[in-house]
Amino acid sequence: MTKNVTRFFGGFTEWQARWLNRMADDGWRMIRTGKLTYVFERCAPGQYRYAVEFIADKSQRNAEKYKAFLEDCGYKVWYKNANLNYSIGKVHWRPWAEAGGQISTNRTTFNKELLIVEKENDGKPFELHTTPPDKIAFLKKWRNVWLSYTAFFAFMGAAFLFQTPIASAVFGIIALLSLIPVILYQVRIEKIRTSEHLQE
């Protein structure tokens, strides 16, 4: 028995993982995923755990290498899109990505921004990032993505300031909105840094 569910979480990886784990708790195991769809089959409640990983900063080679590493660890892994773009020949610049991953195309890493990772539930929490430096590095990736949006829209706001003040205001508001996640990620980074120091 299978079940098709339509959902889109974009880049909200924690929401997506939480939802997949709730589905697994209800006895549904993900077997396939499309851009907007998830296909589940029946399993024992709580038999599987899910984590969602952000890999858009990696080059195609490193993304494949990382996926193979996770599979080697015994996990089942699917690529997942964080964008909803159906165009052909898409080229996307990711200034926050590593060398080799900054230019993303349909043939390489575009629409493969995330990995959904599944493991059989062994009663232990399923975390891919466990050490404080690694957790910080992971959060910094997300912070930098949002920071690049903030910088882009702030630049656009400034560029339109004297020609089209309304457009400039819209860009300014978007820049301010995209600054919120930057601050939220930075707060989480600082909390980890502080807790690291408290242990000394």
Binding site: Y66, V117, D134
Partner: peptide, 12 residues
């Protein structure tokens, strides 16, 4: 000490 696969990958 339980190491997540992502952290281990970075270490390796």
């Amino acid at each position: 000490l339980v190491l997540g696969a992502g952290s281990l990958y970075g270490a390796i």
